[in-house]
Amino acid sequence: MTHTPTRALQYSDVHVGTELPLLRLRPVNRTMLALYAGASGDHNQIHIDIDFARKARVPDVFAHGMLSAAYLGRLLTSWVPQTQIRSFSMRFVGITQIGHIPHLTGRVTEKFEADGEQRVRLQIQCANQYGEPKVVGEAVVALA
């Protein structure tokens, strides 16, 4: 019997409108922000120290925008191997608060050829459980 490896995603498999599988993550909590501060090297106190946050007149610490960006990165690399990602851009449009549940979604918006390869453009988004967008962006990935 022949073992058939999982076939890699191909250009012909996707169409404009094809959606990436939803990536729904755990609710954001303070430990996650402390870990992200340490691991990313972004020690801005607004994300980890509630006393600092209150002095800056915000009611509580909130998530690093780049944590949501990293989640979008996970959305992409769970869809294609990272070597196929050509570009990735985003706008930070909302604050992710403690207790928000990141919902990562993506959709193919264009199929095209550039630099001698087949590529697709994706619209990607990190929203919370209420559907409020927090980070919106796009990515270009190459597909054989």
């Binding site: 801005n44 607004i46 800056a56 925008g65 780049m66 960006a69 990272q82 070597t83 990602i85 050509r86 570009s87 990735f88 851009s89 985003m90 706008r91 930070f92």
Partner: peptide, 17 residues
């Protein structure tokens, strides 16, 4: 002023890993 800034946009263009 550090307390008033936010990250607005971020772009990555990849050439090699």
């Amino acid at each position: 002023d550090l307390g008033r800034i936010l990250h607005a946009e971020q772009e990555f263009s990849y050439h090699h890993m």
